[in-house]
Design a protein around this nucleic acid. Structure first.
Lengths: 182, 182
DNA sequence: GGTCGCATGTAAACTGTTACATGATTTT
DNA sequence: AAAATCATGTAACAGTTTACATGCGACC
């Protein structure tokens, strides 16, 4: 079974919010979906071309802010139905990889102090991410969107907050247990 | 900056437990690290060849159980120091992708009932994974390993349990909030 | 004069996944 | 007789990431 390319749906999703250029999509993702979905420019440009060829998006060129042209893409009816179809469909399972856990699994191969340090660093980065989520929630208050739209944006942020909190709790618990070990 | 291939370290890690063949490594991972790390055979065989060329592992051939030969790889001193170096090093940030959250983010584009159903299905798969972890903890009691080794194996499983519990709690919370919405 | 932001893209390398290919033994 | 397990691997493709390339305007 072939893997279906999800980049196209991420792009269609963004364009369902409002028409955007490739550059804008990148910045939009950076500000909203970056903690669960991010695309590289090298994927965005060819994906938009393909979506345009397939009539999922239309394209309008306008003067760029500083120089040259800017290609604004807009989702078509065909694109919208493709997006809806994907939204409703169930996800194919994907393999999740966590390098930190992989190292931890082999943690007995090195001195305990290294793993204590590793968990500490990991906890610190989790806290930073958690702060970012709390900032995103604050930001959301000042954004003008429909109640329904707001609900789903907030749901993804709450997901991030709950996950990070659980992971941070695990870090503390594990550090405490490590101290008792040996 | 070049990405470092982590497959080789996952393999070296497995071989630090005991000498294994490619086939055994796959089954070992399936039984232990599968929920945070998994490799395909098509990656394992060439990776082992490369590790052998680089003198990180040695190879001994023996009669296979059923037919042909079986190549048993053993980590060398050089391989051990490479593994240790990687274990201590900090992780490069990698992009995490979650198709479920991506869909949820655009959830306002479809009728609420579809997203309710989606969260329900997601919660069910999380519960199943949680049961698997609890089973892994049980299994761990009957495995003979050092106290330190056991600690780190258990830590990765506890991580899984805590994460899944938090996600399940999020599902319930979000379902309840969805009911109130409109 | 150099860097940053806006804005487009291409090329190459690498990684990951699926499918294919082989062959013996054991179980259903 | 067919399917599963043990055991090796290759080929082809799809997807991801890095680096490169271009050019203007604004700011320091």
């Amino acid at each position: 079974m072939a893997r279906t390319n999800k980049t196209q749906f991420a792009v269609l999703g963004c364009l369902s919010i409002r028409p955007m250029s490739a550059y804008e999509i990148k910045h939009f993702m950076q500000g909203t979906t970056h903690y669960f979905w991010m695309e590289h420019e090298a994927q965005l440009y060819p994906t938009l071309s393909k979506l345009h060829d397939a009539k999922f998006v239309s394209c309008r060129e306008e003067e760029a802010e500083k120089s040259g042209i800017r290609k604004i893409y807009k989702i078509t009816a065909k694109g919208k139905s493709a997006l809806t179809e994907w939204l409703i469909k169930s996800e194919e399972p994907v393999s999740y990889r966590n390098e930190f856990l992989l190292k931890l699994f082999f943690g007995d191969k090195v001195d305990t102090k290294f793993m204590r340090k590793k968990i500490e660093t990991y906890a610190a980065s989790l806290s930073q991410e958690l702060h970012l989520f709390e900032h995103l929630i604050d930001e959301l208050h000042s954004v003008k969107v429909s109640e329904k739209r707001r609900f789903f944006i907030e749901a993804t942020i709450r997901y991030g907050i709950k996950s990070k909190q659980a992971e941070i709790a695990w870090c503390h618990e594990t550090q405490a247990m490590l101290k008792k070990l040996k």
